[in-house]
Simulated assay, not measured.
Amino acid sequence: MVLQVQEGLLTTSSPRVLVATAVPAERDAVARALTGDRISVIAVGVGPAAAAAATATALARTPYDLVVSAGIAGGFQPEAPVGSLVVADEITVADLGAETSDGFLPVTELGFGTVTHRPPAALVRALATATGARPGTVLTVSTVTGTAARAAELRARHPRALAEAMEGFGVAEAAVAHGVPVLELRAVSNPVGPRDRAAWRIGDALAALTEGFGKCAPVLESWNPYDQ
């Protein structure tokens, strides 16, 4: 609950939550699970830049207490099988930096920027308990992984990575700029690695996303940011 002062009285209300998905199909999957008016869902576009711009615009127009990046994702096997849910305890951008003769250097090792945002730990635990989602690192990439070599490289650099998607870090950057906590919840639609569209289970992942939000909505609506 969020504490408010109205006419000298201390009152409580449910927090306002903004859920940012990439595309309308993900937005609709989340919306199907929601019954109240305290959680808003928007489609912000594909990729971190579009996600950051649209999320920042939404936050500038309406005050929110929490932002959630949500949608489907590729899962690193075998930890995040197709159809499962993952919740980020770290939202990390995987390809912001420089390629060198010694390998990839994240932007932080170049002396500026940030590469990781950490959601509220208590809320991550609560969502994992409510939904059965596995907590871990969710990577944000600008180019989706399409080879086994690339998947192995990412896992070597990020051994706790469970999934990769394209918007979480952009949503997180916008949220942090507005002083709002951020989460990321993903349903796995395909393995990270060689592109095999016959193995993708987008419909199953969208159904898992709906089911997951049905279970986590009460947690989000009762969350008190002042308890963190």
Rank of each mutant, 00 (worst) to 15 (best):
T62A: 04
P63F: 12
P63Y: 15
Y64V: 02
Y64W: 11
Y64G: 00
Y64L: 03
L66H: 09
L66T: 09
L66F: 07
V67D: 08
V67R: 05
V68A: 07
V68C: 10
S69P: 11
A70E: 12
A70G: 10
G71M: 11
G71W: 02
G71E: 08
I72D: 05
I72T: 15
I72Y: 06
A73N: 03
A73D: 02
G74W: 11
G74L: 09
G75E: 02
F76A: 04
Q77L: 13
Q77D: 13
Q77G: 06
Q77S: 14
P78V: 15
A80L: 11
A80Y: 11
A80T: 12
A80G: 12
P81S: 09
V82T: 15
V82S: 05
V82Q: 04
G83S: 05
G83H: 04
G83M: 04
L85C: 08
L85H: 03
L85K: 04
V86R: 13
V86M: 07
V87T: 06
V87G: 06
V87L: 05
A88Q: 06
D89W: 07
D89H: 14
E90P: 00
T92C: 15
T92I: 05
V93N: 03
V93T: 13
A94Q: 02
A94M: 05
A94D: 03
D95L: 10
D95Y: 15
L96V: 03
G97V: 03
A98I: 10
A98F: 05
E99D: 15
T100M: 07
T100E: 07
T100G: 07
S101I: 12
D102A: 15
D102Q: 15
G103I: 14
G103W: 13
G103R: 10
F104C: 08
F104M: 09
F104Y: 10
L105M: 14
L105Y: 01
P106R: 09
V107I: 15
T108W: 00
T108F: 01
E109P: 02
E109M: 12
E109S: 14
E109A: 14
E109N: 11
L110T: 04
L110G: 13
L110C: 07
G111C: 11
G111K: 06
F112C: 09
F112T: 15
G113T: 09
T114K: 08
T114H: 13
V115K: 09
V115R: 12
V115T: 15
T116G: 07
H117D: 13
H117L: 10
R118H: 15
P119G: 03
P119S: 02
P120T: 00
P120M: 00
P120I: 00
A122P: 11
L123I: 08
R125V: 14
A126M: 05
A126T: 09
A126E: 12
L127R: 02
L127P: 04
A128P: 01
A130R: 06
G132I: 06
G132N: 06
A133D: 02
A133F: 00
R134Y: 02
R134V: 13
R134C: 03
R134P: 02
R134K: 14
P135T: 07
P135M: 02
P135R: 05
G136D: 05
T137N: 04
T137S: 11
T137V: 07
T137A: 12
T137M: 06
V138F: 02
V138C: 14
V138R: 00
V138Q: 08
V138E: 05
V138I: 15
L139Q: 00
L139R: 00
L139G: 01
T140G: 09
T140Y: 10
V141K: 01
V141M: 04
